[in-house]
Computed example of a mutant assay.
Amino acid sequence: MPGGRLTHQDRRSIAAGLAEGLGYAEIARRLDRPTSTISREVARNGGSDGYLADHAHYSTERRARRRGPVPPPPESPGPSAAADAHGREPEAVHGFAEEFAALMVANGLPRMAARVLARLVTTDSGALTAAELVRGLRVSPASVSTAIGYLEGLDLVRRERDPRQRRERYLIDDDVWLRTWLTSARTNAMLADVSRRGAEILDTATPAGARLDRMRQFFVQLSDDMAGGPTAAVFSDTLTVLAALVHAGTPRTADQLAGALGWPLERVADALDSAERHPDIADPVSLRYDESGARTVTARPGRLTPAQREALGHP
């Protein structure tokens, strides 16, 4: 019956529908089931690309044996339920929330955290209490608490006290995705810095050092693409500092460069950092440090072959 548990044959029909490229709504119509039933079934059993009927049925039966004989949870309101004030069908909203959660799970978010996030995203206010999440998701308060803690750690949700009801609400801000983007950019920048130090320690002339240098270049580029890259002023300062080092011909410290150029030390430091982080700007030279920490410029690794360097008198 429409409200009962999915049978093995139902799951085979779902797998066949996915193989045909059908959407959840069409599969649900063929089985006379709510769309949310299909979306939940697929999401919890490998997603649309990894759904296997036999495995899904076996996994469901195994979970049922562990839980013991419990009544099935009530299905979400069907298509006949009244639309909300904006004319939206509850069935369609719930189906989208499940699809959104499934996508988050496929990208590494724990399932309960994904369901909580999806519920907040699809709520007009963008805010719900723990009790509302427990009722809406039909889960335990502990599950909601754990999911909220996880999402807070990612800076995806925040909590605030409702002074009228003396309880906390959990919110998702409109700029949450921008904050997440910038956090990712900072993480990539840190990875670039770590790999740069590793390349210096291992020496880029060795296979391990060269590998770390390529890693550095990758994360520098990725971080800059996300955060916007160096400004025009920093770009110009970088070229000036490199020109100064070429003209000097011998290593110079940041203090010496600042004195010679008549710049604040911070401006020189920013230009040197840009030269290290953006090898495309410094090409065809690259910065090198001596034991005192002074900088000099050398031909960028890879620009000249060993035979060419030897022919020029610097193997």
Rank of each mutant, 00 (worst) to 15 (best):
Tyr150Ile: 00
Tyr150Ser: 00
Ala43Thr: 10
Leu287Ala: 00
Pro74Asp: 09
Arg111Asn: 01
Gln9Thr: 10
Leu202Gln: 06
Gly21Thr: 03
Glu91Lys: 06
Glu160Met: 07
Ala269Cys: 07
His247Trp: 05
Pro284Tyr: 08
Ala43Gln: 07
Thr7Cys: 02
Leu109His: 10
Pro77Trp: 03
Leu312Arg: 14
Ser125Tyr: 02
Thr146Tyr: 10
Gly249Gln: 07
Arg300Ala: 05
Arg300Lys: 13
Gly198Ala: 13
Glu20Trp: 05
Pro284Lys: 04
Ala210Pro: 09
Ile148Gln: 02
Val70Leu: 15
Leu128Arg: 04
Arg197Trp: 11
Ala147Asp: 01
Ser145Met: 02
Val121Gln: 12
Glu276Ala: 10
Arg135Ala: 15
Ala25Arg: 15
Pro110Phe: 08
Ala232Glu: 12
Arg166Val: 11
Arg33Asn: 07
Ala275Gly: 04
Leu312Ile: 13
Pro264Gln: 07
Gly293Thr: 05
Ala113Ile: 06
Pro207Thr: 08
Gly153His: 10
Ala275Cys: 08
Ser39Ile: 01
Ala199Asp: 01
Arg295Phe: 15
Ile38Ser: 00
Asp255His: 14
Val70Ile: 11
Arg288Gln: 11
Thr250Met: 12
Arg158Gly: 07
Val144Phe: 02
Leu137Lys: 00
Ala232His: 14
Thr60Cys: 06
Leu287Lys: 03
Gly153Phe: 14
Phe96Gln: 13
Ala271Cys: 06
Pro90Val: 01
His247Lys: 14
Pro74Lys: 09
Ala28Thr: 04
Ala127His: 06
Arg30Asp: 02
Tyr58Ile: 07
Tyr289Glu: 07
Leu171Gln: 10
Asp10Gly: 03
Tyr58Gly: 00
Arg267Ser: 11
Glu310Arg: 14
Thr7Phe: 06
Arg300Tyr: 05
Pro71His: 11
Arg40Cys: 02
Arg12Ala: 13
Leu239Ser: 09
Thr35Lys: 14
Thr123Ile: 01
Val194Lys: 10
His55Arg: 15
Pro301Phe: 09
Glu99Ser: 14
Leu178Lys: 05
Gly17Lys: 06
Gln165Asp: 09
Thr298Pro: 00
His8Val: 02
Ala192Pro: 00
His314Thr: 06
Ala114Thr: 04
Thr298Asp: 09
Pro301Asn: 07
Glu75Phe: 03
Leu239Val: 04
Asp174Leu: 12
Ser184Met: 14
Gly259Phe: 11
Ala243Asn: 14
Leu117Pro: 00
Arg135Thr: 15
Ile281Lys: 04
Glu41Tyr: 01
Arg63Met: 04
Arg62Met: 05
Asn107Thr: 14
Pro2Ala: 14
Gly293Ala: 08
Gly4Lys: 13
Gly4Trp: 11
Tyr289Ser: 12
Leu257Ile: 06
Arg135Tyr: 12
Thr183Ile: 04
Val144Met: 01
Asp173Gly: 12
Pro284Phe: 11
Ser286Asn: 08
Asp84Leu: 10
Asp213Leu: 11
Gly95Ser: 14
Phe100Thr: 08
Leu245Asp: 01
His314Ser: 07
Leu242Gly: 09
Leu171Tyr: 09
Ala311Ile: 03
Asn107Asp: 12
Asp10Ser: 06
Thr231His: 09
His55Trp: 11
Asp193Leu: 09
Leu191Ser: 04
Thr35Ala: 15
Leu6Tyr: 07
Arg44Ala: 15
Asp224Glu: 15
Gly262Phe: 12
Thr298Lys: 12
Ala147Tyr: 03
Arg5Ile: 03
Leu222Ser: 08
Arg288Asp: 07
Leu137Arg: 01
Phe100Arg: 09
Leu245Glu: 01
Met226Arg: 11
Ile14Tyr: 00
